[in-house]
Design a protein around this nucleic acid. Structure first.
Lengths: 244, 244
DNA sequence: AGTCATAGTCAACGGCGATGACTTGTGCTG
DNA sequence: CAGCACAAGTCATCGCCGTTGACTATGACT
């Protein structure tokens, strides 16, 4: 086998020899990482894939990131700050405001389904998060809730939005083959259940919405807004009356 | 190196030679898997760990499960069926039924936070799931929804319950140190924001509930039930009128 | 021109899920 | 009751992953 030509052969296969000395940086690596993660999926974001994308040796990345976890966290943060660029503008309808706030978050989660799970649970305490909280709080107060109620409903609202979004996103992030198998189960196996044991399922099998049905999120938000309106109107007459 | 003693040496290290012929089964493997997953975490559930726990060769498991995915799905379902027992009994109040169904699921997710993520997204198509669906569907119909509405609301309800539960669970599953830091942020950093930029936050900082506040889930469910009741009462007069 | 920290490279390690060839035991059949 | 077939357990091995430590070229600064 070639001895002196080894290097040039490998270089040719990769385009050029070793990369220029300061041609890598966190920013450049993150850019390549985003490209891979959004097109091939987060599970395809490996050091090998990064190396190929960058035309660099896979382990070069360790000169810029301690480990893969650090890389992924930083990637998430960079995606978020880019996605939340434009800020929310207050309208004269608290319903519209809460709804658009919810859709904003939902949209972001669905844009990067691979990361939804991490995004939902972590507090980032950055300006973007602060202003989102302030915005929603203001809308809840305008809805007619007392400050105490609003403080609690802020969490309810946020958890519903993030929970629904991350769940929907995690469906999108599933391996397509697995997802196809699961979806088929709903459509086929559910129709074959016995009428005696599962009368409702078997009579309505054809109408059951798919778990990832896009109507679900919007509908859930409308229901929530309805409920808030109802609570607020009740509170104006008598104090809150939580269920047992 | 030993030639004829190789086997006995390895046997000694593992206790005994090869396992008796029918000493493995799906049930036995699942039992070991649950033990590992609940004590060491889901990421520690590997074939090697299973092999050590069972005192069997790691690949023996492939005789009983096609691949790891099948094993995990079955594990999730076995946990679920144990957790849900036979406890769902229909009452004369659809609200009570939906609420107890929601709390069942919520409780289950919090009991096994490691699995919450997988549980929320995956369909396991096993008997326990079927009966849950049938139960909820029945309650929604009794609430007064039309079959079409009920078919859709089944998903809304399920997604809200699972989304909220898995988000709460994923908080529990977070690295304790990270969680402590995030919680501290709400209690400290949020109080120090400027009054001009974030008037509501700074005036209500003391009352803001914690993201993991246990009241949130119950409150969200009550709001949902209120909203369903409202929809049902409207529908009885005029057909459904979804928001734009 | 010489030096030296450092960015990029490389081979190797251990752990992972998975495969296919093998061995061993059990029970069935002639 | 011999021996055969087949299923259950085992093993070597594959390819991929993240990570490490030794190396080597680079290029900025004396």
């Amino acid at each position: 086998m070639g001895t002196s030509s080894d290097r040039s052969a490998k270089s040719a296969a990769r385009g050029r020899g070793r990369r220029a000395r300061d041609s890598l940086s966190r920013a450049i690596i993150l850019e390549a990482a985003e490209k891979i993660a959004t097109s091939e999926g987060l599970e395809s974001l490996t050091f090998q894939a990064l190396g190929k994308e960058l035309e660099a040796h896979p382990t070069s990345i360790y000169r810029h990131f301690r480990d893969k976890d650090e890389l992924v966290l930083e990637l998430i943060d960079s995606l978020r700050s880019r996605s939340y660029g434009g800020t929310l503008k207050k309208s004269d309808s608290w319903r519209d405001d809460l709804r658009s706030s919810a859709r904003h978050i939902h949209e972001h989660y669905l844009r990067y389904p691979q990361f939804a799970f991490q995004m939902a649970a972590r507090t980032t305490r950055r300006p973007m998060e602060f202003s989102n909280v302030e915005f929603a709080l203001d809308a809840l107060l305008r809805a007619g809730l007392s400050p105490e109620d609003a403080a609690l409903q802020l969490r309810v609202f946020g958890n519903i939005v993030r929970g629904l979004s991350s769940m929907e996103a995690s469906l999108l992030a599933l391996d397509p083959e697995i997802r196809a198998r699961d979806e088929l189960a709903w459509e086929v196996e559910y129709r074959q259940l016995s009428q005696e044991e599962y009368p409702h399922i078997s009579s309505m099998a054809g109408q059951l919405a798919h778990i990832g049905d896009p109507r679900i999120f919007d509908l859930a938000i409308e229901l929530y807004l309805d409920a808030i309106e109802l609570r607020a109107s009740r509170t104006r007459v008598t104090p809150a009356e939580p269920e047992p």
